[in-house]
């Protein structure tokens, strides 16, 4: 029991330190919040989400009426960008939640049960891991038919193996510790041990890995949609807009600039967030040699 309490204290302490010290953490968090708020606002503000096209208004440069210009069907790019941010984040977050649940469950069960269970989980992980991510994603997208569902499934299958490994490794260390052995000896039910002792102690790893998985998710969604296998028109997503922007780069550069830079900001913010969380939740002290 003491072990659990002790590690809880560390995780909480790590997060508390974040609150006071790290400007990067806050900038990253701020950027993400801003993006998500903007996409919500895009849905709520009337008129902005009016996705209808206007004749003759194709590929208009940014103006007061259309702050980011218009797209190939004369729709306001701002409205489509905000919708795209929403789609990309919803898809990626949903996928990462699925990944986190699957990977954590598999990782902990494999570590706790050991033996054959562990062997099977690890081999399945190996198989998925050996597929290059984009080929795996394409194959799934083609099997399910291109679209949001396919993108979601692809992201989950691409991110699950790595996260299972990381959580499994962390859980394997926890399982060997005294408080788990004690709980086992005193006859506590296995599911209870896995949740109350193991899960609580690998939570830091889960949070860090889920953050990294989110950045992979945004990339995979982008890549799939760019290739035409992800989100489909008339819906919008960052990858889909980038794909349109790629063709019209010369006459309507604002499409690629807007969607591309939003994507870079989103991924960068998520990665920085992951780094900060990792530094705090898994701290190390290095020698300064310089």
């Amino acid at each position: 029991m003491t072990g659990t309490a002790a590690s809880r204290a560390t995780a909480a302490g790590g997060l508390r330190k974040l609150r006071t010290s790290d400007p990067v953490f806050f900038t990253a968090l701020g950027m993400l919040t801003l993006l998500i708020l903007a996409s919500v606002a895009g849905r709520l503000i009337p008129g902005l989400n009016d996705g209808t096209s206007s004749v003759g208004g194709r590929f208009e440069a940014p103006s007061l009426a259309h702050p980011l210009g218009t797209d190939g069907l004369g729709r306001s790019l701002l409205a489509r960008l905000l919708e795209g941010i929403g789609t990309t984040f919803m898809l990626s977050l949903a996928a990462v939640v699925c990944t986190a649940i699957i990977a954590t469950a598999l990782g902990i069960i494999a570590a706790y049960a050991g033996g054959w269970a562990r062997e099977i989980v690890m081999r399945i992980g190996d198989i998925l891991y050996a597929f290059p991510a984009i080929l795996l994603a394409l194959l799934i997208a083609a099997s399910l038919g291109p679209g949001g569902t396919a993108a979601l499934a692809s992201i989950v299958l691409v991110t699950v193996p790595l996260m299972t490994r990381m959580v499994g490794a962390a859980a394997a260390q926890v399982v060997q510790r005294d408080f788990v052995t004690n709980a086992r000896i005193s006859g506590v039910a296995a599911p209870l041990i896995m949740v109350r002792h193991v899960l609580v102690n690998v939570a830091g790893t889960v949070i860090v890995q889920a953050t990294y998985a989110l950045s992979v998710a945004i990339l995979v969604e982008g890549g799939l949609s760019f290739l035409g296998y992800g989100v489909q028109l008339p819906a919008s997503s960052l990858g889909l807009l980038a794909s349109e922007g790629n063709v019209y780069m010369l006459t309507a550069p604002w499409i690629l600039i807007a969607s591309g830079s939003t994507m870079v900001i989103a991924i960068l913010a998520v990665n920085l967030l992951g780094d900060c969380l990792r530094d705090r939740l898994e701290p190390r002290k290095a020698v300064d040699l310089t």
Binding site: G223, N246, L268, D275, A286
Partner: peptide, 27 residues
């Protein structure tokens, strides 16, 4: 890594290498 404990440089280098893994190859 060698300069990790220095304050200012660490933030800048984190952002630069962070940027590298954040720019999608198709963009």
């Amino acid at each position: 890594a060698l300069r990790a404990s220095r304050k200012g440089g660490a933030v800048a280098s984190r952002i630069v290498s962070g940027l590298g893994i954040s720019v999608p190859d198709f963009v």
